[in-house]
Nucleic acid binder design. Structure first.
Lengths: 161, 161
DNA sequence: CGAAGATATTTTAAGCTTAAAATATCTGCG
DNA sequence: CGCAGATATTTTAAGCTTAAAATATCTTCG
């Protein structure tokens, strides 16, 4: 529809696809490296670490739904992760007194200790991986990603909430 | 070791972690949206589309190892994807004449047609999702990601090839 | 009160992903 | 030649992830 308003390169979207593939490769590289290190150093998976990170910021605990929303994954997904974390004694699940449908999840004392230990090292790992960018470049990247996220949201905000 | 050469904010790595989480969220958002659209419009998964994309650029086909390397996933992973693509009649696997260990994979005619149809729409989708960034911003993002990838590689290049 | 619809969560089926072990084949060297 | 190590791939076990269906509880409204 905008063909004569906005001249395009020979193949529509080719440059964007290259950029997208680079973004994906970069993210996967970092994610894979962090996953490997978490497994080797702490025998923990990235999703379990992420789950615990949500709880660590919420002293009173969170419901399963809150966790799934903040992790941006499906409800069913967090059920499985919670199952394994509970089996390891790192979290506790209690049915809410007010609303029996909801489950209130908290870190156990062991979970809080384990998370703190891992998080400290995790911070350093991430700082290391990003140390090839100076502060200005990091700010620039953060800004571009915010714009990109907004751009994506324009095309997705009309999904079933 | 560099503590007195390079002053750090109060919590080491906090800014980098925030940037990393933003990068991850942004990538997941785009990846999820593309996955959903591929499934709804073409009943195909992202990994299968990606697998076919590798083959489409290689008229003579590729070995399983070449495919797993270009997709940056494990060997075992591509075995499963190939199994399903072959069941759908989209690829063909032939034992190599020279080296009986290797498998030469090619797109079937149906596979080539299916890929072409999907790829055209996929290009447009990606272009749409990125249309909130102008050309300069896209170039800037590509450049920062290249630097980031290089930075990450510094810390990972010493892994078993 | 009681049913209809909304909300929170779990279950299920299918598929993706990894790491590690197993298989099969090839290559080089004595 | 024959075997030791290298290479290509598959298999296995465990876990992550999604979408859709099922379950359980709550809320609203007549």
């Amino acid at each position: 529809m905008t063909a004569d308003l906005k001249p395009q390169p020979a193949v529509s979207g080719a440059a964007e696809v290259r950029l997208w593939l680079r973004l994906l490769a970069c993210t996967n590289e970092i994610e894979g490296e962090l996953r490997r290190r978490l497994r080797q150093s702490f025998d923990v998976t990235l999703p379990r670490f992420d789950f615990m990170a949500q709880l660590d910021r919420a002293p009173d605990g969170l419901t399963m739904g809150q966790i799934s929303r903040s992790m941006m994954v499906t409800n069913g997904n967090v059920t499985g992760i919670a199952e394994r974390l509970a089996a390891e004694g790192l979290i506790e699940r209690r049915s809410s007194p007010g609303d029996k449908r909801t489950v209130r999840v908290t870190l156990t004392e062991a979970g809080r200790r384990a998370f703190a230990e891992i998080a400290a090292v995790h911070h350093d790992w991430v700082a290391d991986l990003f140390d090839g960018l100076n502060e200005q470049e990091r700010d620039q990247l953060a800004d571009l990603l915010a714009r990109l996220k907004a751009s994506v949201a324009k095309h997705t905000e009309d999904r079933p909430a």
